[in-house]
C-alpha cells in the first residue's frame, strides 16, 4: 500500500501539478488575507483567520476537484487499472492509498498558509484555540470533499467531467446552508433541523469559534468513510459488470 501511496505522491510532486495548485491556493488565501486587513475598522485592529476560510469557501473548494480529478480517471484511461486490480492489494487498500496521497497534498497546502498566522504572531496577538480549530475544521471538510472528488473520478472515468461535476456538487454543499436559511425552510422546523444537520458550513462555524464538538468530528469522519466505501463498491461493481 505504501508503494502506491509513494507513487501517487511522486505523480503530484514530480510534475508541476501540485505546485501550481498549492500556488493557487496560496494566492486565494493571500488575497483574502490582504482584503481582511484592508477592511479592518480603524479603531479596532482585529480580524479573524476563520473568517478568511468562511468567506472564501467558494474559491478554496474549487481547487479540490482539480486535485482529485485524475486519481482514478487516469488509471482507467491509461489501462493501468489492470495493474492495480491484479496486484495482491485489495480494492479497499488501493482506494485508501490514493485517498491518503491526495489528503497529504491537501495538508501540505494548508501548512503553506500557516505562514500568515505565524507572521501575525510575530507582530501581534493570535487566538490559538480558534485558529487551530478553524484549520482542523477546514481540513475535515476538505477530507469529505476529497472523498467525493475521488468517487466522481472513479465513476465518470474522465478527468474533465469529474472535475466539472465535482465543482457543481461541492458548490452545492455550500448552497445547502443558504437553503437552510431561507424563509421557506424555516417554516418547517423538522426540515430546517435536517438541513442544518447535513450542512457542513454550519458545522464549520463551531470550529471557527474555537469549539471542538465530538459530534462534528464524527460527522465529517463518517461522511468521509461512507463516500470511500461507496467508491470501493463502485469499483467492485464496475469489475463485475465490466463491458
Amino acid at each position: 500500500m505504501f508503494s502506491l501511496y509513494k507513487k501517487e505522491m511522486q505523480s503530484y510532486f514530480f510534475s508541476p501539478f501540485a505546485y501550481v495548485l498549492i500556488a493557487l491556493f496560496m494566492l486565494i488565501f493571500s488575497f483574502a488575507f490582504v482584503t481582511s486587513i484592508a477592511s479592518i475598522d480603524s479603531n479596532v485592529l482585529k480580524f479573524s483567520f476563520p473568517g478568511i476560510f468562511y468567506d472564501n469557501f467558494f474559491f478554496f473548494i474549487f481547487i479540490i476537484p482539480i486535485l482529485t480529478m485524475r486519481s482514478f480517471a487516469d488509471e482507467r484511461r491509461g489501462n493501468t487499472e489492470v495493474l492495480l486490480l491484479t496486484s495482491p492489494l485489495s480494492v479497499g487498500k488501493i482506494v485508501m492509498a490514493k485517498f491518503l496521497a491526495v489528503l497529504t497534498v491537501f495538508a501540505i497546502m494548508m501548512l503553506a498558509t500557516l505562514f500568515f498566522p505565524i507572521y501575525i504572531c510575530c507582530i501581534g496577538k493570535i487566538m490559538w484555540s480558534s485558529l487551530i480549530c478553524a484549520y482542523l475544521g477546514f481540513f475535515l471538510w476538505g477530507m469529505v470533499c476529497i472523498a467525493i472528488g475521488m468517487l466522481l473520478s472513479s465513476l465518470t472515468g474522465n478527468a474533465i467531467i469529474s472535475a466539472i461535476l465535482g465543482e457543481i456538487i461541492m458548490e452545492g454543499t455550500l448552497l445547502v446552508d443558504q437553503i437552510g436559511g431561507s424563509a421557506l425552510v424555516n417554516a418547517y422546523p423538522y426540515l430546517n433541523s435536517a438541513i442544518s444537520w447535513i450542512s457542513m458550513q454550519r458545522r464549520f462555524v463551531y470550529f471557527s469559534q474555537g469549539m471542538f464538538r465530538l459530534e462534528d468530528l464524527i460527522f465529517f469522519l463518517s461522511a468521509t468513510a461512507v463516500v470511500i466505501c461507496w467508491n470501493i463498491i463502485a469499483i467492485e461493481k464496475r469489475r463485475w459488470s465490466h463491458s
Binding site: 508503494s3 502506491l4 507513487k7 495493474l83 496486484s87 495482491p88
Partner: peptide, 8 residues
Amino acid sequence: LFVAGLKG
C-alpha cells in the same frame, strides 16, 4: 520498482 513494491 513501484510494481515490485506493489507486488509485495
